[in-house]
Design a protein around this nucleic acid. Structure first.
Length: 759
DNA sequence: GAGTTTGAAACT
DNA sequence: CAGTTTCAAACTC
């Protein structure tokens, strides 16, 4: 119900019970919530447990979401009931009221208490679909419910996802609400971002509120909280007093802070109560609620006032509403899509298909769908810098009506927690790379921009121009990056979209079967590599190398045709390039690349390096960013379904990996193809290396491990086979090396994972 | 913006 | 595994 869907879902119920708020509520009510304990718990969990979850992305898990949605609906129903004034009836019966408050989920009681005429009662009793009705009937309440930062998005999302019918019904209301409330509602696209950002911002509030048992209610303003407290204090029996007061308030106005407080206590903090609370908070007249005869009007007026006066609460609402209403579909799609990827639930997929427009013609739609959960673009943006993301989202929201904004925002929320910190720091380094540009990039449709992106920007926002591959081959950058194609892509007959998730996944699997590392980052580098690069001025640390190496013949590894150069890394033994002049490091220079030296064609070199240095620095920076992205899959990369986020692996040891170290790694042939045939005379794996490997096997990602075969360890003088060797024996068996390479590998985002993923 | 170049990916 | 083809990005004009 409440926004904190994810958190709620994730957080154990026990936590709620343990929470001071819960205890407090329990103590307050003489009546023990025996009836629907389960429901009550669910609510509690939803309301409180999730505080942290607020930040979490809605995508958390489709299953959970679905469950949550159901619960959520109940809570919503209950909330509306309260707000709608049914609560009055409920309040009449104190016990009932209490139960109802506690047990929003218990529809039976609610029905009894509620006026039969009221749709609310029915809705409450009825399944989610009916809830929808309820929502329709109680648009206002819904709106306000959205008010809670967490609950808003989540509830809306949930509602929408649960039943299209309901969502449809809801939409108009939301729209109305938004319209009535203020222009801000219109802002939505941006609003989504804001919402999330606000969530974060509010998150603090929530946390503080939650933490403060005394302030059981989620009142943002201390005044409200105090008033609420007073209500409790008034009656010897806090519960009763609360109910009575609540009744009054409800009669006067649904917005009643108290109700919100109750809900909070009950465990539905964020949902309706939260909204109402915000309004009240926003509106100085809150105290006057009772005076208001027409609750609805009052609410509306308050809302408008709040909007004008207090943008925050309104904004959220508006945003939420807009999301719900105008964007409901998109949201659903997005949510579903995300869930789809995560769970790869067929049902969800079907939903997505329905929801998502097949053809990306619509910018917003496209972005939204893919973006929501899966796409790197979104992820990348998000991951880059939470702050930046926020700003961007906000900004984008303002400037960009596109759904993309909303989409991004969601992604950001989800991943912020996980990846933001790491990524943000790295990306911050490069101003150009920062999120703002990224956002723009995403919006950008022209190929030019795309190029720009490729040049400097991280891969997060890939744009392809595929015409024949249907974006289902590695030719497609988007597909190769594990992200869905988005609007900016100029691809034709694109199948790399959430709608075609099944196809995408199947294709991926197929490709992976051929080459397990196909979706692994091409450039592997250690976190520390960047500094090294700078130190050396040009050459990249040995630790950072292209996994397979390049095969350049004419570009001399000085153009982006060269993947090594493009990745900002030096060529390595793995490279079969001819006339390598890679400014980031020539194959010859590669440490421990005795074979390399043998192989290499030597080149003159210094001149190139010197000449290029200046330009290189920028490239290096960019590359660093990219590499970082790659390293931190969590942060930016993976969007497609298969991808899962690996925990970022960083070198425990700060020390740069020694070049020799690198050399070892490189030679090891992690990337080397299967070609075992040519043993590298120079570099057979030393026992030492093997030992190292064994020591670090644990750290190495499975994918890498797979590739890593003992045989592979030897880098052949022959050019690297492009095709990565299929997974071979496990690392354990094979000798491992503890080289930085290993670490690097870990950092590499695993691709194919079944877990969910990000535009 | 169109055409060329390039090298990876895919295919045989 | 090598050779060839396909493909799309990178590049040039």
């Amino acid at each position: 119900m409440d926004t904190p869907e994810k958190t709620q879902i994730t957080t154990p119920l026990s936590k709620f019970e343990d929470s001071p708020v819960f205890n407090y509520i329990s103590s307050l009510s003489p009546i023990k919530p025996v009836k629907s304990i389960n429901i009550a718990q669910s609510f509690h969990s939803l309301s409180f447990a999730s505080l942290p979850s607020v930040f979490t992305s809605p995508h958390v898990s489709s299953h959970k979401e679905t469950r949550f949605l159901k619960r959520h609906n109940y809570s919503d129903l209950s909330k509306p009931e309260f707000s709608s004034g049914n609560g009055n009836d409920v309040c009449k019966d104190e016990e009932v009221a209490v139960d109802a408050a506690q047990l929003y989920g218990n529809s039976a009681e609610l029905q009894d208490n509620f006026d039969p005429g009221m749709s609310i009662g029915e809705s409450s009793a009825e399944p989610p679909s009916e809830h929808l009705k309820f929502a329709v009937e109680l648009p206002q309440t819904l709106k306000y419910d959205c008010g809670s930062p967490d609950s808003r998005c989540a509830t809306q999302m949930d509602i929408v996802s649960e039943s299209a019918d309901t969502s449809l019904s809801l939409v108009p209301f939301t729209n109305e609400a938004s319209q009535k409330s203020s222009l801000e509602g219109q802002v939505h696209p941006a609003g989504l971002y804001r919402i999330e950002s606000e969530k974060e911002a509010t998150g603090c509030d929530w946390e503080s509120l939650i933490s403060d048992a005394a302030d059981l209610l989620v009142f943002n303003s201390p005044i409200d909280a105090e008033g609420f407290k007073e209500l409790f204090q008034k009656s010897p029996n806090p519960v009763v007093g609360f109910c009575t007061s609540f009744n009054e308030v409800q009669k006067t106005q649904i917005v009643n802070p108290f109700g919100s407080g109750e809900q909070n206590e009950m465990g539905n903090p964020s949902t309706r109560p939260g909204e109402t609370i915000e309004l009240t908070q926003m509106d100085p007249t809150l105290d006057n609620f009772a005076a208001n005869e027409d609750p609805n009007k009052y609410m509306i007026s308050n809302a408008s006032k709040a909007v004008s006066n207090l943008h925050r609460g309104m904004r959220r609402r508006c945003l939420d509403f807009e999301k719900v209403g105008s964007r409901r579909k998109s949201i659903d799609d997005g949510s579903s899509s995300s869930s789809v990827f995560v769970q790869s639930d067929e049902k969800i997929i079907s939903k997505n298909a329905q929801l998502v427009p097949v053809k990306p013609g619509q910018d917003s739609s496209r972005c939204i769908l893919p973006g929501i959960g899966l796409h790197l673009n979104a992820l990348a943006i998000n991951s880059k810098d939470s702050k930046k993301i926020k700003h961007e989202t906000f900004f984008s929201s303002i400037t960009l009506p596109g759904s993309a904004a909303s989409f991004h925002s969601r992604t950001t929320d989800r991943e912020l927690d996980e990846s933001l910190t790491l990524v943000s720091t790295e990306r911050d380094n490069d101003p150009n790379e920062n999120g703002v540009p990224l956002v723009e990039d995403c919006n950008q449709t022209s190929p030019k921009k795309k190029r720009r992106r490729l040049e400097g920007e991280p891969e997060a926002c890939k744009r392809c121009n595929c015409k024949k591959s249907k974006c289902l081959k590695l030719y497609c950058e988007c597909f190769a990056a594990g992200v869905y194609c988005i609007e900016p892509c100029a691809c034709q007959d694109c199948f790399n979209k959430p709608i075609h998730e099944d196809t995408v996944l199947a294709t991926r699997k197929q490709i992976e079967s051929r080459n397990p590392l196909a979706f692994a980052p091409k450039v592997i580098r250690s976190s520390e590599s960047a500094p090294e690069i700078r130190d050396e001025s040009i050459k990249t640390p040995a630790s950072a190398r292209h996994k397979r190496g390049c095969n350049c013949k004419k570009s001399t590894c000085l153009k982006k045709y060269c993947e090594c150069y493009q990745g900002g890394v030096g060529c390595s033994i793995n490279c079969r390039c001819e006339g390598c002049k890679n400014v980031f490091g020539r194959k010859d220079d590669f440490p421990n690349s005795g074979s390399a030296s043998m192989e290499m064609e030597d080149e003159p070199e210094d001149e190139t390096e010197a000449s290029v240095k200046n330009g290189v620095d920028k490239i290096l920076q960019k590359t660093e960013i990219q590499n970082n992205d790659e390293q931190n899959p969590n942060s930016a990369l993976p969007t497609t379904p298969l991808r899962f986020y690996r925990p970022l692996v960083q070198f425990s040891s700060k020390g740069k990996p020694p070049r020799s170290f690198l050399g070892v790694g490189s030679s090891s042939g992690l990337y080397t193809g299967h070609r075992h045939g040519k043993p590298n005379t120079l570099r057979p794996q030393s026992k030492f290396e093997k030992q190292c490997q064994n020591a670090t096997d644990d750290d190495i990602p499975e994918i890498l491990r797979e590739n890593h075969s003992p045989s592979s360890g030897i880098k052949t003088s022959s050019p690297n086979s492009k095709r990565v060797s299929p997974p071979q024996s496990n690392w354990g068996s094979s000798p491992g090396r503890r080289s930085g390479r290993k670490l690097i590998l870990q950092s590499i985002p695993s691709f194919p994972s079944l877990t969910p993923h990000e535009c």
